[in-house]
Nucleic acid binder design. Structure first.
Length: 113
DNA sequence: CCCATGACCTATG
DNA sequence: CCATAGGCCATGG
């Protein structure tokens, strides 16, 4: 018979679970782009990773998953920047004074610190 | 099946 | 640095 849900929490698609697993693995002070995760995972694309983060990202350190241009997540900039400050994530200040990630230094290569 | 949307990316000017 | 263009692919109307 069709087995009903035995979990109190909504069940996660396998792909989503894999994405979140990678996100959870990013060390503090480092970041990974949506594309990086897709590539690292060997499936899906940046948009698919983005979708997963939008839907289930709340359970993981979402601020460590960013766009390739290092722009903070729109709508959550304050929280993200707060985290970057705490984790000493490499930032760079633009002419207007707005801060974005210094991708060259903040991007995680997958190796240990 | 067509079309629009999205926590995207890269190349080009 | 900003703007455009094309590519990408799952999801939903």
């Amino acid at each position: 018979m069709g087995r009903m849900s035995e979990e109190s929490l909504p069940e996660l698609p396998d792909y989503a679970e894999r994405v979140l697993q990678v996100a959870e693995r990013i060390p503090p002070g480092r970041v990974l782009t949506y594309g990086d995760i897709a590539e690292w995972l060997g499936e899906g694309g940046p948009r698919q990773v983005g979708r997963v983060m939008a839907l289930y990202g709340g359970a993981v350190p979402w601020w460590r998953v960013v766009r390739a241009d290092g722009l903070p997540l729109p709508g959550q900039e304050a929280r993200a920047l707060e985290q970057y400050h705490v984790e000493a994530t490499p930032l760079r200040t633009s002419g207007a004074g707005d801060q974005r990630l210094d991708m060259r230094r903040a991007r995680w290569d997958g190796k240990d610190d």
